[in-house]
Design a protein around this nucleic acid. Structure first.
Lengths: 361, 361
DNA sequence: TTGTAAGCGTTATCAT
DNA sequence: ATGATAACGCTTACAA
């Protein structure tokens, strides 16, 4: 176990001073060709590698950024994080990843740890809560960009998706297919995307003069298990919805599981449409209609915005841009075929299978 | 944008020396109750947070570990990484994540960057290549644990899965169902898991006295696109296999896509079994039979092993353990039902639909 | 062009 | 019990 080589070692090997070695390796200031080659040779010989920690202490930058998302296990965030990492690494930054699991306490702790680590910037998809700590961080000069979700009263660069509009579009599409009883499994309460997606749902109903049935709005929490349970509740209703609008990918898998377990025919008995378009969406039977978010791009854009911010802070410019991307409705089969208005009756006549023990209408 | 508070500020506020403040906050050495409360109060007032970078310079530990996997977008690695992060964070370590994309150059670069960052340890799932750099790192005293894959000649703690045995078991199961022409889409050449999984396949055939048909072994690369292509090749064979054994999750989704596109009936025309058991496995039609790896546990175990190693290095103990976990065969429907030997003929008589234009047998 | 030395925020070893 | 002070490895004035 050989000792790690330092600049001092290189300098000694080159027969020059530490300052000299630093200048050559950092390629700044003055140095002769001769010194340059001496230092380079020495560094090579010792296979010297700078200690970025030590450098960071002096330069006050760590070339690391922190990323806090709710859960890297969900397709949306995995992809997003991959986007972040790709541009971060391309630019010489490392990313430190943290999963908040939608827990504000955990989120705060990670933020704190990241701050202590002296990360150069932070990309965060904030969970519920008042986020006073986030604001404090921002005020303290920490470069910060929000992704996917916003925080009221926090003016920093943000990369979002137009949740309201795409949710509206999705529900509108369902209505165009003839659906009138549209059940929705909402996201986690307190998270901005949940509110926005629900708002889009409501607007679509309203504009189509369909009365809003409270029983058709059931609260989810962005997690699979909960959605599975909630979908079960929907199925067991006396008058179940003809379609389920599920507000993220893990919940969609949960809802599908529930439909399967209860042998509900998709889309004949209950159709389904999900937010997020994971790789497996085309593989279910029937293939899943989804709202596809450009999660990878959201990641790259967020990271680019952050890097800009980091550079900007040095020059105390404050750009603070808001990027809003548009998700895409991907129509497959799970949402059902167009139903002629008068034929709708026939569709809800299909009885649910034994596990339920009674008809759907 | 207020300045970050340092120990010096705390000391000044408390009317004591920096050393004093450090001792109290670090809870070591001697200090009076009075000083303690003074320092604590001052720290609280200034909301002082230690600079772990500066501390690291002195203590030579960064409380960060590096993780290099091929691609966080695959279910196996996402889950594994989540396991790593959970135990890392529980123990006060941050994790820096890197995706090598199976590219040895990229892998080496990341390893280098991680080394420069002074991470306390490394968890890596090595790609192809000779990994001389990895060995060098290990020799230099860097704590290292390998996960999922091994490197010949590198004796460090490792967390693996018994690929050969589980592959054997899977293929054996297929044979028990009556399958005789078993196509396999292998993993990336040069990666240990690929070899092992193929070895299990071969042994199963051999022990069942089924001759090994080279045309039934097609090389994949662990990526979806390639498998989709290869599965297409299988489908177009004059005498296609009755089942496909696909060596990881992204490839399984690719193969499924190909089967779908070609309207191949699963499992009647071609059955399928996949390595890895993603959330969506029960959602395909028919539900996917898989070999489920305990990826989350692999992550937690790997991280525990690394932390042990890190602590051990300090005391120059070298435990170096090898943990081998057993995957589980999860039988669903895609692998087909038991076929009575003489009835096998009926099964391959089902003609492939128009896109293929000819029967399967 | 080169070397010296201060300083980044800590920790830890000295005296006192 | 406390306060100076010297590291840690690097960058960067400043002196030479």
């Amino acid at each position: 176990m050989e000792q790690r080589k330092t600049l001092k070692d290189v300098a000694r090997e080159a027969g020059l001073s530490v300052g000299m070695a630093s200048r050559v390796l950092g390629n700044y200031g003055y140095f002769s060709e001769e010194s340059k080659s001496k230092v380079l040779k020495a560094a090579e010989k010792l296979s010297y590698r700078p200690d970025v920690i030590a450098r960071g202490l002096k330069t006050r930058e760590t070339k690391a950024i922190g990323v806090v998302v709710s859960d890297i296990l969900t397709f949306f965030f995995t992809t997003l994080v991959r986007g972040i990492e790709d541009v971060a690494n391309q630019n010489g930054y490392s990313v430190i990843l943290c999963n908040s699991d939608e827990d504000p306490i955990k989120e705060r702790e990670y933020l704190l740890a990241l701050y202590e680590r002296g990360v150069d910037g932070l990309i965060i998809s904030p969970s519920q809560g008042n986020h006073s700590y986030l604001k404090k961080l921002s005020r303290s000069g920490m470069s910060l960009v929000l992704v996917d979700r916003t925080v009221r009263g926090l003016k920093v660069s943000t990369v979002l998706v137009d949740n309201e509009a795409s949710s509206y579009e999705a529900v509108n599409y369902l209505i165009s297919l003839g659906h009138r009883r549209i059940g929705v499994i909402t996201g986690l309460k307190g998270v901005t995307t949940s509110k926005e997606r629900l708002a889009g749902y409501k607007r679509a109903l309203e504009e189509n003069h369909i009365s809003l049935e409270p029983e058709l709005i059931k609260e989810g929490n962005y997690r699979r298990e909960k959605a599975q349970e909630v979908a079960g509740d929907f199925i067991r209703m006396k008058n179940p919805p003809t379609v389920l609008f599920v507000c993220n990918e893990p919940m969609t898998s949960g809802a599908l599981l529930a439909l399967r377990e209860n042998k509900v025919k998709i889309p004949e008995q209950i159709a389904i449409i999900g937010f997020d378009d994971p790789v497996w969406a085309p593989l279910t039977e029937p293939a899943l209609t989804t709202v596809s978010q450009p999660s990878y791009s959201m990641g790259t854009l967020a990271c680019q915005a952050l890097l800009k911010e980091i550079k900007g802070v040095a020059h105390s410019e404050i750009p603070s841009e808001e990027i809003i991307l548009k998700p895409k409705l991907i129509i497959r089969e799970s949402s059902g075929k167009r139903i002629v208005e008068n034929e709708e009756a026939t569709r809800i006549k299909v009885p649910l299978s034994p596990p339920l023990g009674r008809g759907i209408g």
